[in-house]
Design a binder for these strands. Sequence first.
RNA 1: CGGGGCGUAGCGCAGUCCGGUUAGCGCACCUGGUUUGGGACCAGGGGGCCGCAGGUUCGAAUCCUGCCGCCCCGACCA
Length: 491
Amino acid sequence: MGKELTSRSEDYSQWYIDLVKKADLAENSDVRGCMVIKPYGYTIWENMQQGLDRMFKNTGHVNAYFPLFIPKSFLAREASHVEGFAKECAIVTHYRLKNAEDGSGVIVDPDAKLEEELIVRPTSETVIWNSYKRWIQSYRDLPILINQWANVVRWEMRTRLFLRTAEFLWQEGHTAHATAKEAEEETIQMLNVYADFVENFMALPVVKGRKSEGEKFPGAIDTYCIEALMQDGKALQAGTSHFLGQNFAKAFDVQFATKEGSLDYVWGTSWGVSTRLIGGLIMAHSDDDGLILPPKLAPIHVAIVPIFKSEEELQKITEKVNLISTELRKKGFAVKFDNRDTHKPGFKFAEYELKGVPVRLAIGPRDLENGTIEVARRDTKEKKVVSIDEVTTLIPALLDEIQQNIYTKALKFREEKTTHVDTFEQFKNVLDEKGGFVMAHWDGTPETEAAIKEETKATIRCIPLDAKEEAGKCVYSGKPSSKRVLFARAY
RNA sequence: CGGGGCGUAGCGCAGUCCGGUUAGCGCACCUGGUUUGGGACCAGGGGGCCGCAGGUUCGAAUCCUGCCGCCCCGACCA
């Protein structure tokens, strides 16, 4: 019927693209690599923002906004930072257009060249630390705990809706502290906030860990991350939190007078999650019939479909439904009563399944007679008929149960797809045949990491924070290792 | 940036090899009617610079040249 999805088993990445488009989350724009986030998709983002923003505020952060454009010279201040981003920057070189003399349209006015080119921010460390230099004189000005919600641009060669786009939306936290210890604690605190959010709102279990040298953020001393597993057995980095040390403070000369009267460079952190989370949300939970959204992020919690033949029937149903929706809205749920007479109930059922609405109610003449209503849950597809009087008290518990069930299912999947291996043969076999997370010993050298990546396409996703001390031998080099690290093929 | 594929109605495609009246199909859209507890049916209707520019020809979606754009697969990345 034009709405059918490619199945996951047939072509996982096509399934993903179909789903994003058919569930009306987003579409490609005319600018390569960019996307239009449609209202249904954007509402998911708004719900994410709401949850995260509250958590940021609760941990003492405030929001601010820094400019989109960064003077080119700023980016060059921190050597590894510029190296990390140089290859994917969009650059503004002119500030004016004019009509072409031959009438063929508009052209860039060559007389309007900028003295210094501006970089469209790929991330904001540089502009922000440039401000911090002015804001910080003394230990009394610290800490600064700022977050910003913004868009950034990274000129990627290959893009995929939500997972990797040239422009994306995110939040970036940038904090400044008087001591290394405090900054390190902040880094871990925000990692925990992310893990909490992803597990409790997105219903997606994550592994918290530290990145290897090769995988860490350009400009950071340490990068921590949360890694989630997608249904196709590939890993997705869901959030990162960086301990910046004094790198940016030194690059932007941000010093402060300590209590003791000496001068010291400020310690920094930065941390972010992006609209990529929406991609992860889709890939982690959804099925061949469409999206499955956790209630805590779903734009619509309950869709109500009336079944009617006549106008009078619809009238009677509407009266009942109004009571129910008012009650549910009072409890804080987003309810949609779909009283369109242009589509049949069956069409609507399929549509709400495609869009991942957690709970669907159906009510028709039969129900009016019996004082009942049909309740269907998206995650398990179970349907049951309940008394209309108790439906509004059942739904909050049902939504909680759905949230929990989605999480449990994802956790079980991850556990099944996490394999401990001790030889390189096993390592390769598991990656090719089973996929998922592979826990293996690693000798800690970048050379081994690179060689494994070269041979298997798998990377070290992280060194898990809860890794047990365990003597072993590196799967690749055979050299001694004290703990297992998490390998996977990744997005 | 290499390799492959594709641009024809809002979407998905056929037609192109072998040039020939008015460019076709499915979905979507509009109108009317019958329907409505799992993606309705019938009838009628609207919608096209056939990616752009040039050339060959009596005649080009179709052949030739150039350009532009997109998708897939690789090297780089949240």
